[in-house]
Design a protein around this nucleic acid. Structure first.
Lengths: 374, 374
DNA sequence: GGGGATTAGTTAATCCGCTGAACTAACAAA
DNA sequence: TTTGTTAGTTCAGCGGATTAACTAATCCCC
């Protein structure tokens, strides 16, 4: 069972625990169980959650009346006793608006259902929009996305480049000309819907954690390789924010003090080696380049893997560059540079979600925040 | 306000939230408030916790009847309205047994009160005891420590070298000849008291987090430098365990692939440079050694600091070796190798708790587990 | 084929902890 | 003395879960 990454702002100002909160918690428990384990009977749910059958029945009735759950009748195989009636999540009970702001040239959005399936897509060219123009463009995209479904909307999730705090304010995103931009609050006002905004790499790691293939409960780091390099981490089932909301900013960590000068002013940042344009260029010039970059990447990751005792490191980006020599070299280097206890169970792999990691993660922001599911 | 690191095993099997749990949570809220903020009136507590005055009064009465709180009368300065009656934690209401198993030659223990003050000390020479003998020795030490106080015992906390899982089972501790040793369960049986066992570095970081000087809420890493090197991390207010309970195992991360061969078989592990005997030796041979080690340390830590966006890195060990050139070189190197957003707010310092970090942390294990305070 | 045995789900009474509203208590300012 | 303010308690009631006892529907087996 996967525990919910805690995303978004704390629910209550202090820490007071109302009965209402207990109710919400128990609702989330049931939804989570059905989300991960698929349809189950009320009795099953009572056993797996520890709640009594009475309470489960009550909650199921409530959730069913909201359309989130439906009775699915009795299961095929038959055992002793009264046959149970299975209940299951209605995947299309509500839809989620997800937006990925990380591409350099466009804002890309989609409608997803509760199972994380993409039901519709829509994107708008960025055309160099910055600052308020970019905000307006996002508002327009969100509104147009909402028009693409006739189902009620659970909420809006946005993965944005740059540093984003836990309240969905973009602290700093040079590419979009945003600084201290209260993106979540603005959208919430405009759309009258729950809105969650997080950094694109953080969003991506949530997507991978919830909808990816691996067993990502033991500590997961996702490295997004594109124009730049960013990472997101899920530790102990929770998204890591960091002191200044800047967790995962690994792109400008120095790998090679004798390397190339980086745009940021330092020398030998990870991005001078690992960014997609650099990789393509290097690969064209030298067949062995990917291996060397992989080794450098491994050298940066080894202290992180060892210190955090990570279970999975996932690379997200162009598979033809990442999934092969580079990944293998990184994997081998990490193992060579950490203790067996750190390296033995480590998995270094590429993401199975492709370009949709961020969209999937944006949906997870909403799922986790609104339903407590992930 | 500092949030409680979650230590020990989960309280309930599933995630069911009883009213009883709410009550415990609210008790903990009050205790936490008084623990961090010192004496306060019931009305103050109601304001700061969000609970109603009725509930606060009720909880305070309950806690007072247990002897944990006491009325302190009215404060000196006078304002309009009925003067409040302050209530405060009774620091010596119960005492805590803390044991540090990390020294190579002895088991060192202490009695601490709720304020983390050492009330008594006692230690026994290890004399090469291993396996069951070491377990027996620990049991004896714990029993003798209990005799040193006439106050009721809140619980027993132990910081052990090696890998320790969340249930207090020592997975592997070569020095003590332990493997899969259920230390917490054994002690619990023998003493009929709550017992918490954690890795020594993890324990230490909890001690620093709760009783240290710094503002350690933004992500804290503590590096323990002794015979070996180990680390502990508090992220988002919670102790990081890692996938195989091996978080913080940084001693055998390779720093210098061209370095010296390590006892572990690899080449250039951090421990080949940073361990205390090595440092003393290197310093005697070469006045610049500390600076070079500091730089190497900075190079290992930079990826970690950047990735986690840590706020504080604390060095614990002999101050004459760590606090000076080495610390400054590490600090400078980390800053040079990370983005400004990562380095600007970073604090690299030594621990103020000295040799008692682990004992203090062992007390925190108990405080957090039993009272929800830290 | 009818009576256990077994499992699923509901109904009813009750309990626990918190809440709001109203109360008393104790002070300062006017 | 009156008024206003703040602290703290009393009391009735509510929300949400629990236990116990019930009904319902199946298999098993004599």
């Amino acid at each position: 069972m996967s525990s919910s990454p805690s995303v978004g702002r704390p629910l209550r100002p202090r820490g007071k625990l109302l009965q209402e909160d207990a109710r919400r918690h128990h609702r989330a428990l049931l939804l989570q169980e059905l989300f991960r384990g698929g349809p189950a009977s009320r009795a099953d749910l009572a056993r797996s959650t520890g709640l009594t059958r009475v309470t489960v029945s009550d909650l199921v009735a409530e959730l069913a009346s909201e359309g989130l759950l439906e009775d699915l009748g009795a299961p095929a195989e038959t055992r002793v006793g009264k046959p149970p009636t299975l209940v299951g999540l209605v995947a299309d009970a509500t839809h989620i608006v997800a937006v990925d702001l990380s591409p350099a040239d466009r804002m890309s959005g989609a409608i997803l259902n509760l199972a994380g399936e993409v039901k519709a897509r829509h994107e708008v060219p960025l055309a160099g929009a910055k600052g308020q123009d970019a905000v307006d463009l996002l508002h327009r995209l969100a509104a147009e996305l909402i028009e693409l479904t006739d189902r009620p909307i659970l909420g809006v999730g946005v993965g944005s480049p740059g540093v984003v705090d836990a309240f969905g304010t973009v602290i700093d995103a040079p590419n979009l000309g945003w600084s201290e931009q209260p993106l979540a609050d603005g959208l919430k006002q405009a759309l009258n819907l729950p809105v969650y905004v997080a950094n694109d790499a953080n969003t991506a790691v949530l997507g991978e954690h919830t909808f990816g293939e691996g067993d990502t409960d033991g500590g997961l780091m996702l490295l997004r390789v594109g124009i730049g390099v960013g990472a997101g981490l899920v530790l102990g089932g929770a998204l890591l924010h960091g002191h200044q909301a800047a967790a995962g900013e690994i792109g400008h960590v120095v790998v090679d003090p004798d390397g190339e000068r980086c745009a940021c002013g330092r020398v030998g940042c990870l991005e001078t080696l690992l960014a997609v344009p650099r990789l393509r260029q290097a690969m064209a010039e030298d067949g062995d380049a990917l291996r060397r970059v992989g080794e450098q990447l491994g050298a940066v990751l080894a202290p992180v893997v060892g210190t955090l005792n990570l279970h999975e490191v996932v690379l997200a980006g162009p598979a033809e560059l990442l999934d092969g020599t580079l990944r293998e070299a990184a994997d081998a280097t990490i193992r060579a540079r950490t203790m067996p206890v750190s390296g033995d169970h480590l998995v270094v792999r590429t993401s199975t979600l492709g370009d949709d990691v961020v969209l999937a993660g944006a949906a997870v922001l909403v799922l986790a925040g609104e339903l407590g599911v992930s």
